[in-house]
C-alpha cells in the first residue's frame, strides 16, 4: 500500500522525496477522485493552513479524511498539517478583525490539541534548532512561521518541547509536528511513520 500526500498547496514534494528515501511509495492526493486509490496512511504537509483548509472543504476531502483518521489510519501532519488536525486553533492575536470560522478552523479536528498559529511571529521569528523527540536524539527541527501546541488533551503524548512549548505530539496513530522534518536530511521521523 501507499502513503497519500495531500497536494493542495505547500511543500508536498519534499514529503514525497522523504518517503521515497525510506522506501515508502506515495502519491499526490488532490481531489475526491484520488480517494479511490488505495492508501493506508496520510501526510499533511506544510504550507498555508487557511489555503489548505479551504481547499480541503471545497474539494470534498474534509469528511472522508476525517472519517479515515478517526478510524485509526496513521497520519503525519507537519506545521500547517498539525493545524489542520487540531481540535481547536488559536490566532496569533495580531489580527484586529474577526475572520469567519471557515478561515480559522478547526478543519479535520481529530487531534485533541489547541494549536496556536504563527506562535513565533512572522518570518523574522522563523528558526532552526535540534532536540529530543521521543526516543530520537538530536532531531533537526526547522520552524517556519510555525505554530505550537498550546494545550493537549489526556490522550495526547507530548513527544518534544522547545522552550517549554509542545512542538511534537502523538495521539494513537496521529502525529502532529510544529516543525518540518521534510526540509532536513534526517529521515528518522519518516522512517518510523512508515512503520506505524
Amino acid at each position: 500500500m501507499a502513503t497519500a500526500v495531500l497536494a493542495l498547496q505547500g511543500a508536498f514534494e519534499e514529503h514525497e522525496r522523504a518517503l521515497a528515501d525510506v522506501g515508502e511509495a506515495s502519491f499526490e492526493l488532490r481531489s475526491a477522485a484520488d480517494l479511490a486509490r488505495p492508501f493506508d496512511r496520510l501526510v499533511l504537509p506544510g504550507g498555508e493552513s487557511t489555503v489548505q483548509g479551504k481547499l480541503l472543504r471545497e474539494e470534498g476531502l474534509l469528511s472522508p479524511l476525517r472519517e479515515r483518521i478517526a478510524a485509526g489510519m496513521p497520519v503525519l501532519g507537519t506545521c500547517a498539517g498539525l493545524i489542520l488536525l487540531a481540535r481547536a486553533v488559536e490566532g496569533d492575536g495580531s489580527r484586529k478583525s474577526a475572520p469567519d470560522a471557515a478561515q480559522t478552523g478547526p478543519w479535520i479536528g481529530t487531534l485533541d490539541v489547541v494549536v496556536k498559529r504563527n506562535a513565533y511571529g512572522r518570518q523574522l521569528g522563523s528558526f532552526h534548532t535540534e532536540g529530543q523527540l521521543g526516543d530520537l536524539a538530536h532531531v533537526p527541527m526547522t520552524f517556519i512561521r510555525a505554530p505550537f501546541v498550546a494545550s493537549a488533551g489526556p490522550a495526547v503524548d507530548v513527544l518534544a518541547t522547545v522552550d517549554g512549548r509542545a512542538v511534537a505530539v502523538r495521539q494513537g496513530a496521529q502525529i502532529g509536528l510544529a516543525f518540518h522534518p521534510e526540509l532536513d536530511a534526517d529521515r528518522r521521523i519518516h522512517k518510523s511513520f512508515a512503520k506505524l
Binding site: 498547496q9 505547500g10 511543500a11 526547522t142
Partner: peptide
C-alpha cells in the same frame, strides 16, 4: 524554506 511553503 518559507518560499517552499508558498509553492502551489
Amino acid at each position: 524554506e518559507l518560499a517552499q511553503m508558498l509553492k502551489g
